[in-house]
Each structure stands twice: as C-alpha cells, then as structure tokens.
C-alpha cells in the first residue's frame, strides 16, 4: 500500500544533492536507523548520478510503502537516455563506461532490499529500489 508519493527532477548535480536531502527526510520520517538511512541515501545518490550521466537526466519517484505492518521507501529512477544494451554486464562490479568506479548499479543493489531494473535501448532505463524498515 502506498501512503505518500512525490517526484523530483534530475537535471543537474545540484539536483542530486536535493535528492539526497529528500531521501534523508523521508527515511528519517519512516524511523529508519542511521545506517539504513545512509545506505538508502547512498544508493539514491548513485542512481541519480547514473540517470544524469548516462541517461541525460530524468526523474525520481518517492513512494512510502506499507506492507503487513512493515514500512518502507521505494524510489524509482527513470531516464529517457540511450538505455543499457547488456544489463548483466552493467550489474558487474567494476564495469563502467563513464567516470565512476563502476559500482553505481552493482553497489546500490547491495545497499537495498529490493532492486529492479528495466531498460530498452533507445528508450531509456528505469531502476526501482526498495528498502524496508
């Protein structure tokens, strides 16, 4: 069940900072532990930067979830960039086509409870992450 939603734009590196601050606020409201807050913020930072660098910008949707008494936060990053031809490869540690350390996707997957990625070449990429309290 979704009890609260919001959407933020990702068009500049300042937006990444704003997204991090928003994730901090949402996770704190949900009562996440400091470590869990930090993990979710870091994952969001990685994915927002991916959307900006590889997808040419996009947006992130925030959803506060509630399932059988557990509360969580789901973030969906969507861009309309070139897409990822080989997702398997993109999820490998150390694989990069850009400036980072190649830990954006693989690393953020380890920081959350649920991770979903869908990408179509020429249309864009959508990454959904969820972390439960």
């Amino acid at each position: 069940m979704t009890s609260k939603t919001d959407t933020l734009e990702v068009h500049s590196s300042t937006d990444i900072v704003l997204i991090r601050q928003a994730v901090r606020k949402w996770t704190a409201e949900l009562g996440f532990s400091l470590v869990d807050q930090t993990k979710m913020i870091t994952a969001a930072s990685e994915l927002a930067r991916n959307a900006l660098e590889y997808g040419g910008g996009g947006e992130v949707r925030f959803e506060q979830l509630e399932k059988s008494g557990r509360r969580g936060l789901r973030l969906t990053f969507e861009d309309h960039g070139p897409g990822i031809p080989d997702i398997e490869q993109a999820l490998t540690d150390g694989f990069t086509t850009g400036q980072g350390m190649g830990l954006g996707l693989s690393g953020s997957r380890r920081l959350v409870n649920e991770f979903e990625i869908a990408s179509t070449v020429g249309e864009g990429t959508r990454v959904t992450i969820t972390r439960w309290k």
């Binding site: 930090t38 993990k39 870091t42 540690d93 830990l103 693989s106 690393g107 380890r110 920081l111």
Partner: peptide, 8 residues
C-alpha cells in the same frame, strides 16, 4: 558500513 557494502 555503507562504503564497505557498496564495495569501496
């Protein structure tokens, strides 16, 4: 903790 989990 987060950095280690991230693989860094």
């Amino acid at each position: 903790i987060t950095l280690v989990e991230l693989g860094l």
